[in-house]
Protein backbone atom coordinates (compact mmCIF):
# COMPACT_ATOMS: atom_id res chain seq x y z
CA UNK A 1 0.00 0.00 0.00
CA UNK A 2 2.86 2.40 0.84
CA UNK A 3 4.28 1.81 -2.63
CA UNK A 4 0.94 2.61 -4.30
CA UNK A 5 0.72 5.85 -2.36
CA UNK A 6 4.31 6.80 -3.11
CA UNK A 7 3.88 6.09 -6.85
CA UNK A 8 0.66 8.07 -7.11
CA UNK A 9 2.35 10.98 -5.39
CA UNK A 10 5.37 10.88 -7.66
CA UNK A 11 3.22 10.71 -10.81
CA UNK A 12 0.64 13.23 -9.63
CA UNK A 13 2.13 16.25 -11.33
CA UNK A 14 2.42 14.60 -14.72
CA UNK A 15 -1.11 13.22 -14.40
CA UNK A 16 -2.53 16.66 -13.65
CA UNK A 17 -0.70 18.14 -16.64
CA UNK A 18 -2.01 15.39 -18.92
CA UNK A 19 -5.55 15.84 -17.59
CA UNK A 20 -5.53 19.59 -18.16
CA UNK A 21 -4.00 19.22 -21.63
CA UNK A 22 -6.54 16.60 -22.72
CA UNK A 23 -9.48 18.54 -21.29
CA UNK A 24 -8.29 21.68 -23.11
CA UNK A 25 -7.80 19.79 -26.34
CA UNK A 26 -11.29 18.28 -26.21
CA UNK A 27 -12.76 21.72 -25.54
CA UNK A 28 -10.87 23.23 -28.48
CA UNK A 29 -12.01 20.39 -30.73
CA UNK A 30 -15.61 21.01 -29.74
CA UNK A 31 -15.26 24.73 -30.46
CA UNK A 32 -13.90 23.74 -33.86
CA UNK A 33 -16.86 21.42 -34.35
CA UNK A 34 -19.14 24.27 -33.52
CA UNK A 35 -17.84 26.20 -36.50
CA UNK A 36 -18.08 23.13 -38.76
CA UNK A 37 -21.52 21.93 -37.91
CA UNK A 38 -23.61 24.81 -39.12
CA UNK A 39 -21.48 25.26 -42.22
CA UNK A 40 -22.33 23.34 -45.43
CA UNK A 41 -19.08 24.54 -47.04
CA UNK A 42 -17.09 22.22 -44.75
CA UNK A 43 -18.85 19.10 -46.01
CA UNK A 44 -18.36 20.24 -49.61
CA UNK A 45 -14.71 20.84 -48.85
CA UNK A 46 -14.31 17.39 -47.29
CA UNK A 47 -15.96 15.77 -50.30
CA UNK A 48 -13.46 17.39 -52.60
CA UNK A 49 -10.48 16.21 -50.57
CA UNK A 50 -8.71 13.08 -51.89
CA UNK A 51 -10.10 10.00 -50.18
CA UNK A 52 -6.59 8.74 -49.28
CA UNK A 53 -5.79 11.86 -47.38
CA UNK A 54 -8.94 11.62 -45.30
CA UNK A 55 -8.22 7.94 -44.74
CA UNK A 56 -4.78 8.74 -43.39
CA UNK A 57 -6.41 10.94 -40.78
CA UNK A 58 -9.13 8.38 -40.05
CA UNK A 59 -11.86 10.63 -41.38
CA UNK A 60 -13.04 8.60 -44.35
CA UNK A 61 -16.28 7.25 -42.93
CA UNK A 62 -17.69 10.28 -41.25
CA UNK A 63 -19.65 13.28 -42.02
CA UNK A 64 -18.12 16.00 -39.96
CA UNK A 65 -21.53 17.54 -39.66
CA UNK A 66 -22.88 15.12 -37.04
CA UNK A 67 -21.70 15.19 -33.45
CA UNK A 68 -21.16 11.41 -33.36
CA UNK A 69 -19.27 11.60 -36.62
CA UNK A 70 -17.03 14.30 -35.27
CA UNK A 71 -16.33 12.47 -32.02
CA UNK A 72 -15.67 9.32 -34.06
CA UNK A 73 -13.02 11.25 -35.94
CA UNK A 74 -11.31 12.57 -32.85
CA UNK A 75 -11.43 9.13 -31.18
CA UNK A 76 -8.32 8.07 -33.12
CA UNK A 77 -6.43 10.98 -31.63
CA UNK A 78 -7.69 10.17 -28.16
CA UNK A 79 -6.42 6.61 -28.67
CA UNK A 80 -3.08 8.01 -29.79
CA UNK A 81 -2.64 10.50 -26.96
CA UNK A 82 -3.87 8.33 -24.13
CA UNK A 83 -1.94 5.40 -25.61
CA UNK A 84 1.20 7.53 -25.58
CA UNK A 85 0.64 8.53 -21.97
CA UNK A 86 0.02 4.89 -21.01
CA UNK A 87 3.09 3.45 -22.72
CA UNK A 88 5.34 6.19 -21.31
CA UNK A 89 3.90 5.60 -17.85
CA UNK A 90 4.33 1.83 -18.15
CA UNK A 91 7.90 2.08 -19.30
CA UNK A 92 8.99 4.78 -16.85
CA UNK A 93 7.27 3.40 -13.76
CA UNK A 94 9.59 0.39 -13.97
CA UNK A 95 12.74 1.91 -15.41
CA UNK A 96 12.82 5.11 -13.34
CA UNK A 97 14.23 3.29 -10.31
CA UNK A 98 17.26 2.36 -12.37
CA UNK A 99 17.37 5.72 -14.14
CA UNK A 100 17.35 7.65 -10.84
CA UNK A 101 19.56 5.01 -9.21
CA UNK A 102 17.00 4.51 -6.47
CA UNK A 103 16.86 0.78 -7.27
CA UNK A 104 19.61 0.16 -4.75
CA UNK A 105 17.36 1.73 -2.13
CA UNK A 106 13.92 0.37 -3.02
CA UNK A 107 14.86 -3.20 -3.83
CA UNK A 108 16.82 -3.83 -0.63
CA UNK A 109 13.79 -3.02 1.48
CA UNK A 110 12.15 -6.11 2.98
CA UNK A 111 9.60 -6.46 0.20
CA UNK A 112 9.60 -8.74 -2.82
CA UNK A 113 9.96 -7.45 -6.35
CA UNK A 114 6.57 -9.02 -7.06
CA UNK A 115 4.91 -6.78 -4.46
CA UNK A 116 6.77 -3.72 -5.73
CA UNK A 117 5.58 -4.34 -9.30
CA UNK A 118 2.05 -5.00 -8.03
CA UNK A 119 2.06 -1.68 -6.18
CA UNK A 120 3.35 0.14 -9.23
CA UNK A 121 0.75 -1.58 -11.42
CA UNK A 122 -2.12 -0.59 -9.13
CA UNK A 123 -0.97 3.03 -9.07
CA UNK A 124 -0.66 3.00 -12.87
CA UNK A 125 -4.22 1.65 -13.16
CA UNK A 126 -5.53 4.42 -10.93
CA UNK A 127 -3.62 6.90 -13.09
CA UNK A 128 -5.10 5.54 -16.35
CA UNK A 129 -8.66 5.38 -15.02
CA UNK A 130 -8.43 8.94 -13.74
CA UNK A 131 -7.22 10.26 -17.07
CA UNK A 132 -9.87 8.24 -18.87
CA UNK A 133 -12.63 9.67 -16.69
CA UNK A 134 -11.30 13.22 -17.05
CA UNK A 135 -11.36 12.81 -20.83
CA UNK A 136 -14.84 11.27 -20.77
CA UNK A 137 -16.15 14.08 -18.59
CA UNK A 138 -14.63 16.75 -20.82
CA UNK A 139 -16.33 15.19 -23.86
CA UNK A 140 -19.67 14.98 -22.05
CA UNK A 141 -19.44 18.50 -20.62
CA UNK A 142 -18.32 20.13 -23.84
CA UNK A 143 -21.14 18.49 -25.82
CA UNK A 144 -23.85 19.21 -23.29
CA UNK A 145 -25.53 21.92 -25.32
CA UNK A 146 -25.71 19.95 -28.58
CA UNK A 147 -28.55 17.92 -30.08
CA UNK A 148 -27.60 14.31 -29.76
CA UNK A 149 -28.75 11.11 -31.43
CA UNK A 150 -30.57 8.64 -29.17
CA UNK A 151 -27.54 6.37 -28.90
CA UNK A 152 -25.09 9.14 -28.13
CA UNK A 153 -24.30 8.17 -24.55
CA UNK A 154 -24.02 4.43 -25.27
CA UNK A 155 -21.67 5.35 -28.12
CA UNK A 156 -19.58 7.55 -25.84
CA UNK A 157 -19.40 4.91 -23.12
CA UNK A 158 -18.37 2.20 -25.62
CA UNK A 159 -15.78 4.54 -27.03
CA UNK A 160 -14.27 5.15 -23.62
CA UNK A 161 -14.25 1.44 -22.85
CA UNK A 162 -12.20 1.16 -26.06
CA UNK A 163 -9.94 4.01 -24.93
CA UNK A 164 -9.40 2.18 -21.65
CA UNK A 165 -8.55 -1.10 -23.38
CA UNK A 166 -6.08 0.76 -25.62
CA UNK A 167 -4.56 2.42 -22.54
CA UNK A 168 -4.18 -0.99 -20.91
CA UNK A 169 -2.59 -2.49 -24.03
CA UNK A 170 0.04 0.22 -24.22
CA UNK A 171 0.61 0.28 -20.47
CA UNK A 172 1.38 -3.43 -20.47
CA UNK A 173 3.63 -3.12 -23.53
CA UNK A 174 5.53 -0.30 -21.80
CA UNK A 175 5.86 -2.35 -18.62
CA UNK A 176 7.12 -5.37 -20.52
CA UNK A 177 9.65 -3.42 -22.60
CA UNK A 178 11.26 -1.83 -19.54
CA UNK A 179 11.21 -5.01 -17.49
CA UNK A 180 13.11 -6.91 -20.18
CA UNK A 181 15.49 -4.06 -20.95
CA UNK A 182 18.35 -3.21 -18.64
CA UNK A 183 19.06 0.10 -20.39
CA UNK A 184 16.39 2.56 -19.34
CA UNK A 185 17.04 4.98 -22.22
CA UNK A 186 16.44 2.19 -24.69
CA UNK A 187 13.16 1.22 -22.99
CA UNK A 188 11.66 4.66 -23.51
CA UNK A 189 12.73 4.79 -27.15
CA UNK A 190 11.47 1.30 -27.93
CA UNK A 191 8.15 2.04 -26.25
CA UNK A 192 7.50 5.22 -28.20
CA UNK A 193 8.74 3.44 -31.34
CA UNK A 194 6.18 0.67 -30.91
CA UNK A 195 3.41 3.24 -30.48
CA UNK A 196 4.42 5.24 -33.56
CA UNK A 197 4.83 2.18 -35.77
CA UNK A 198 1.45 0.71 -34.82
CA UNK A 199 -0.13 4.10 -35.45
CA UNK A 200 1.58 4.35 -38.81
CA UNK A 201 0.33 0.87 -39.71
CA UNK A 202 -3.23 1.86 -38.90
CA UNK A 203 -2.93 4.93 -41.18
CA UNK A 204 -1.48 2.76 -43.96
CA UNK A 205 -4.32 0.28 -43.64
CA UNK A 206 -6.83 3.10 -44.06
CA UNK A 207 -5.11 4.18 -47.26
CA UNK A 208 -4.16 0.84 -48.84
CA UNK A 209 -6.88 -1.82 -48.84
CA UNK A 210 -4.49 -4.69 -49.50
CA UNK A 211 -2.81 -4.11 -46.14
CA UNK A 212 -6.02 -4.94 -44.33
CA UNK A 213 -4.51 -8.14 -42.83
CA UNK A 214 -2.20 -5.94 -40.70
CA UNK A 215 -5.14 -4.73 -38.67
CA UNK A 216 -4.51 -7.39 -36.00
CA UNK A 217 -1.16 -5.92 -35.03
CA UNK A 218 -2.26 -2.31 -34.70
CA UNK A 219 -4.35 -1.62 -31.58
CA UNK A 220 -5.51 1.60 -33.24
CA UNK A 221 -7.57 -0.52 -35.64
CA UNK A 222 -9.20 -2.65 -32.95
CA UNK A 223 -12.02 -0.33 -32.03
CA UNK A 224 -12.91 1.62 -35.12
CA UNK A 225 -15.45 4.23 -34.16
CA UNK A 226 -17.50 3.73 -37.36
CA UNK A 227 -18.03 0.10 -36.33
CA UNK A 228 -18.95 1.12 -32.77
CA UNK A 229 -21.39 3.69 -34.12
CA UNK A 230 -23.14 1.36 -36.55
CA UNK A 231 -23.18 -1.82 -34.41
CA UNK A 232 -23.23 -0.29 -30.92
CA UNK A 233 -20.76 -2.95 -29.76
CA UNK A 234 -17.06 -3.78 -29.79
CA UNK A 235 -15.76 -6.54 -32.03
CA UNK A 236 -15.24 -9.64 -29.85
CA UNK A 237 -12.13 -10.83 -31.73
CA UNK A 238 -10.31 -7.64 -30.84
CA UNK A 239 -11.43 -7.80 -27.23
CA UNK A 240 -9.86 -11.27 -27.09
CA UNK A 241 -6.64 -10.11 -28.76
CA UNK A 242 -6.46 -7.13 -26.42
CA UNK A 243 -6.86 -9.31 -23.33
CA UNK A 244 -4.15 -11.64 -24.64
CA UNK A 245 -1.74 -8.71 -25.13
CA UNK A 246 -2.50 -7.27 -21.70
CA UNK A 247 -2.11 -10.62 -19.93
CA UNK A 248 1.11 -11.39 -21.80
CA UNK A 249 2.53 -7.91 -21.09
CA UNK A 250 1.73 -7.86 -17.39
CA UNK A 251 2.53 -11.55 -16.91
CA UNK A 252 5.83 -11.09 -18.72
CA UNK A 253 6.66 -8.09 -16.57
CA UNK A 254 6.30 -10.16 -13.41
CA UNK A 255 8.21 -13.07 -14.91
CA UNK A 256 11.18 -11.17 -16.36
CA UNK A 257 11.63 -8.32 -13.91
CA UNK A 258 11.76 -10.62 -10.91
CA UNK A 259 14.63 -12.59 -12.43
CA UNK A 260 16.51 -9.73 -13.98
CA UNK A 261 19.72 -8.20 -12.65
CA UNK A 262 19.13 -4.60 -11.72
CA UNK A 263 21.25 -1.98 -13.41
CA UNK A 264 22.97 0.01 -10.69
Amino acid sequence: MNIVKREIKSNLKSMIIWSIAIALLVTIWMIEFDSFSGNPAINDFLEEMPQEMLAAMGMQDFTMGSLEGFIGTISLYLYLLLGLQAILLGSSIISKEERDKTAEYLFVLPISRRRIILGKLISALINLVTLNIVTLLSVILSTISYDKGENFYSFIVLMFVSVFIIQMIFLSIGLLVSSVNKKYKKSGNISVGILMITFLISSLINMVDSLDFLKYISPFKYFDSSYILSEMSLEPIYIIISILIIVAGIGGTFKFYIKRDLYI
Binding site: R6, D100, K101, T102, E104
Partner: peptide, 10 residues
Protein backbone atom coordinates in the same frame (compact mmCIF):
# COMPACT_ATOMS: atom_id res chain seq x y z
CA UNK B 1 22.50 -1.72 4.03
CA UNK B 2 24.55 1.36 3.33
CA UNK B 3 25.56 1.51 -0.34
CA UNK B 4 28.68 3.33 -1.49
CA UNK B 5 26.67 5.92 -3.35
CA UNK B 6 23.42 7.16 -1.90
CA UNK B 7 20.47 7.97 -4.14
CA UNK B 8 16.97 8.72 -2.89
CA UNK B 9 13.85 10.28 -4.34
CA UNK B 10 15.03 13.85 -4.87
Amino acid sequence: YLPSEIFYYD
